[in-house]
């Protein structure tokens, strides 16, 4: 079983991102589970959402404390929240930022930075980064195929909005693949 923890702020679509990633993983033939860590959500407050992937039925219901992957939707969270908590050696952290990370990162964790906000503004016209970060996650982790991601986005959004979100995901996917 592999585990993903998404750190975001209320309103940034962390829960939607978790659901879409789980849907894409399921479409790709895996078992997947997505759930939010419900707190007292306000816009801008730190929030978390979780995804598990396995090739068999997932029974575990606890929150995720030792993730294989994290997605950080807003790099300003790093100074408020220990986003790297529990990360294992060999883990992958995908961080939305236009700069390099200047905070300490656990040993053996690979950090991939992506300017998802600029991609989202360019492709969608809004600073909603979850589909761009999904693209980056698909490229970095290999847990979901891009075609499955596309299916999941099309199921959630209609028409033009789906097209724009897929474009954002593709741009981030290509950027991460290109950098690798």
């Amino acid at each position: 079983m592999r585990e993903l923890r998404i750190h975001g702020r209320g309103g940034q679509g962390s829960v939607t991102a978790a659901e879409l990633i789980a849907v894409a993983a399921f479409e790709g033939g895996m078992h997947a589970q997505a759930f939010p860590a419900f707190g007292v959500e306000r816009r801008g407050a730190p929030v978390q959402a979780f995804v598990r992937f396995d090739n068999k039925k997932i029974r575990l219901r606890s929150q995720i404390y030792e993730p294989d992957y994290i997605i950080v939707q807003d790099s300003t969270l790093i100074k408020d929240v220990n986003v790297f908590f529990g990360m294992k050696e060999g883990g992958i952290a995908i961080v939305n930022t236009e700069k390099a990370i200047d905070s300490p990162v656990p040993k053996g964790v690979k950090v991939i930075t992506i300017d998802a906000t600029s991609i989202a503004l360019q492709k969608i016209g809004l600073p909603i980064t979850n589909t761009a970060l999904m693209g980056a996650f698909a490229a970095a982790s290999g847990e979901i195929a891009f075609a499955a991601l596309e299916d999941a986005v099309k199921r959630r959004f209609r028409g033009d909005l789906a097209t724009k979100n897929i474009a954002a995901a593709k741009a981030a996917f290509d950027a991460v693949k290109g950098a690798a």
Binding site: A18, F26, F35, P36, F38, R61
Partner: peptide, 10 residues
Amino acid sequence: GFILSHTYEP
């Protein structure tokens, strides 16, 4: 509540 009600799974 939440643990099942808000979880996506097959």
